[in-house]
Nucleic acid binder design. Structure first.
Lengths: 149, 149
DNA sequence: GTCCATGCAAACTGTTTGCACGCGC
DNA sequence: GCGCGTGCAAACAGTTTGCATGGAC
C-alpha cells in the first residue's frame, strides 16, 4: 500500500526534519489498524528503538494533528486514541465489556451535517459519532459488568 | 416544572443522605440549561454556600451518573460536561470560535443504532454525536482561529 | 554550523481518594 | 450514636513543557 510512506512524505514536505524517532512513530501509526492510544504507540515504537520517549510520541502526534493527518478520538472517555485520517469518514463502536472497537460507516451522519447546517446556519467542520454497548461476543455478559460498576 | 425536585427525590429514594451540600449541587444542576462542567457547577454551588468543595461536586456527579440521572459528555475534548438526563435524546454542536454549545435532535441517530445492531450484531446502550465547526455568528472568523492554532 | 527535535523530569489539568471530623438519620 | 458524607490536601493519569544536549540538514 502506498499509505505506508504517506505520512513520512507528507511530513517531510512540510520542511520538518525527519529523525529516526519520528520515522519510527510514523511507521508504527501506519502499521496500526487505527485507534491506538499514546501509550500503545509508544510501546510499538520502542520495539524498534527502546529510547523513543513518550514525549516524542506526543509531540509527533501533535504535529500530525495540526497537519490534519491524524485524528484524535475519545473512545473510552479516559484517554485519547489516535488514527491516521482516511478518505471515507467512519465512526466507532466500543464494547463496554471487552473494549473492542468496531469501525463502521454510514451516510446518515452526512445527512445530519446537512440538516444541521440548514436549520441552524452553522458551518460544520467535523462530526464524531461514538456508540457504545456490547459486541456480539459479549451480549450475554451485560449483568456481570453492571455488577462490577 | 416537576423536574425541579426530581433529582433530589430520586436521590433520596435510593436511601442516601441528603445533605445541605448535595442539595445545593442537585439544584444547581437542575437550574442549569445543561452541559455545565464541574468547575462551573462548583461556582454556582458556591453562590449558595461558599464551602461546598469541588470534591463533593465530583462525588455527587459520580453518584448521579451511576444512578443514570446525569450524563457526562466530552465536548471540548479537554474536560467533561454534565447534564441531567432528559426524555428525548439530543446531540451537541460546539462552536470552535466562541465555544457556544447548540443542542439538536435528529431521528437519524436512532436509525444508525438500528442499522448497527442489525449489521454487526451489537447491543447498543448509548450513542453520542458531537459536531463541531462555526456557529452562525462566527462563520466569518474561521481564518482568525486557524491562524491562532 | 544552525536550529529543530530529543530525553528527562518537572509542571500542569482534570479528577479521585485517604483521612479525620461532622452531621443526617 | 452509627456510619455515610464532607473538606482538605495529597495522589493520580494523561498530557505538556523548560532546559540542556544531540543530530538532520
Amino acid at each position: 500500500m502506498d499509505t505506508a510512506t504517506g505520512l513520512e512524505e507528507a511530513y517531510r514536505a512540510t520542511g520538518r526534519r525527519v529523525t529516526r524517532q519520528r520515522r519510527i512513530v510514523l511507521r508504527a501509526l501506519e502499521e496500526s489498524d487505527g485507534h491506538l492510544d499514546a501509550e500503545a504507540l509508544h510501546d510499538r515504537a520502542r520495539v524498534h528503538d527502546p529510547d523513543v520517549s513518550l514525549a516524542t510520541v506526543y509531540r509527533t502526534l501533535a504535529v500530525l494533528k495540526e497537519m490534519g493527518l491524524v485524528e484524535e478520538h475519545r473512545l473510552g472517555e479516559e484517554h485519547s486514541h489516535y488514527e491516521p485520517v482516511r478518505d471515507e469518514p467512519h465512526y466507532h463502536f466500543t464494547c463496554r465489556h471487552c473494549g473492542r472497537v468496531i469501525e463502521f460507516e454510514t451516510p446518515l451522519v452526512e445527512r445530519i451535517r446537512k440538516e444541521l447546517s440548514d436549520k441552524k446556519g452553522v458551518s460544520v467542520l467535523a462530526a464524531h459519532l461514538h456508540v457504545s454497548g456490547y459486541c456480539s461476543d459479549c451480549r450475554g455478559a451485560e449483568e456481570a459488568v453492571d455488577d462490577e460498576a
